[in-house]
Amino acid sequence: MLRDSTRSRLFLAVLIVAAVALMVLDSRAGSNPVTSVARGGGELVFTPASTAVGLAAGPAATLYEGVSQGPKSAARIAELEAANAELESDLQAARLDDGRADQLDELLHLSGLGGYEIVPAQAVTRTTAQGYGHTVTIDAGTDSGIRPDMTVVSGSGLVGRVIEAGPRLATVKLATDVNSTVGARLEKTSKIGAISGGSVPGGPEADLTLELFDMEAPIDEGDRVVTLGSHDGAPFVPGVPIGTVDEVHVAPGALSRIARITPAVDFASLDMVGVVVSGPAEDPRDSVLPPKPDPKGDQ
């Protein structure tokens, strides 16, 4: 570091004079040995200083370039992020469309097996708040021929029944609602009973509970249950899969046998459903149930 002194000022003056002399000499053409030597000496003296200045100025120039291009870069980044978000949205929509297409295929397959005429709809909202029960709103109503007391199914089985219908929307009470009761029949023995939403007094915790009216009726885990069917198919058409026996329970003094049922439908992820606007010409019995897995199939 140079200090402000007579020596430093003298040194600075010498440098200035030398620089001026070099500029004069450098402006002259030719290869005069004197001027060549002077130029070489000047380069030896001033090149380190110019290099240091260049190194110091480099980051500042880069910073200036970055700042001057900053708005353009930010705009480009925002543009790319928006395009990426749009692509992700399109991909998600495509996945949803593919999923709904698969659900619709399953729904049409079930309706074909049972001989049910259905109106497809989408479950758009769901209510499980206390006092409102388990219900969903679907995006189809009286304009599509839907009215109260019609059976609602998915590609897997029973969803519930319509309790209210407007021109373009309808409300469906789910089979899991505590105030829901469905006549049911065991696949294996054809013994009948009633499926209730939730648990019943004396029974285990459940989403669906079966009460068999015959205390002596055989019932085992894995037995499947379908809808018994109502008069004129309202509110329930016959033969719709309800679920599978998960646990059998006999309460002391009970007048019926109680079983916990695993629903055929995943009520936590309802999407595409079908409203049965016309029931089958005859009871499909167990033909709507999927084939039972072969216990030897994995061997």
Rank of each mutant, 00 (worst) to 15 (best):
D4G: 02
R9S: 06
L10Q: 08
V17G: 07
A18E: 10
V20T: 08
L22F: 15
M23W: 14
V24P: 03
V24C: 05
R28A: 11
A29R: 10
G30W: 02
V37A: 14
G41C: 10
G41F: 14
F46L: 10
A49L: 15
T51E: 14
A56M: 09
T62D: 13
P71S: 12
I77C: 06
L80F: 05
N84P: 00
L87A: 15
Q92L: 15
Q92P: 00
R95Q: 12
D98N: 11
G99N: 13
R100A: 05
A101Y: 12
Q103G: 00
L107G: 00
L108H: 08
H109L: 13
L110V: 06
L113R: 15
L113Q: 14
T125M: 07
T125D: 04
Q130K: 13
G131F: 07
G133K: 07
D139Q: 02
G141T: 03
S144K: 14
R147T: 09
V152G: 02
S156A: 13
R168D: 15
A170W: 06
V178H: 14
T181Q: 15
T181N: 14
T181Y: 11
A184V: 04
R185F: 03
T189R: 11
T189G: 06
S190W: 01
S190Q: 10
K191G: 13
I192P: 00
I195P: 00
S196M: 09
A206F: 03
A206E: 03
T209R: 01
F213N: 11
M215S: 13
M215D: 13
I219C: 04
G222S: 11
D223E: 12
V226G: 03
F236S: 03
P241L: 03
T244F: 04
D246Q: 12
V248T: 07
V248K: 04
V250I: 10
A251Q: 09
G253A: 03
A254R: 01
R257T: 15
R260P: 00
A264T: 02
A268N: 11
A268Q: 08
P280F: 02
A281H: 09
A281Y: 05
D283Y: 01
P284G: 03
R285G: 10
P295N: 01
K296M: 13
D298R: 13
Q299N: 06
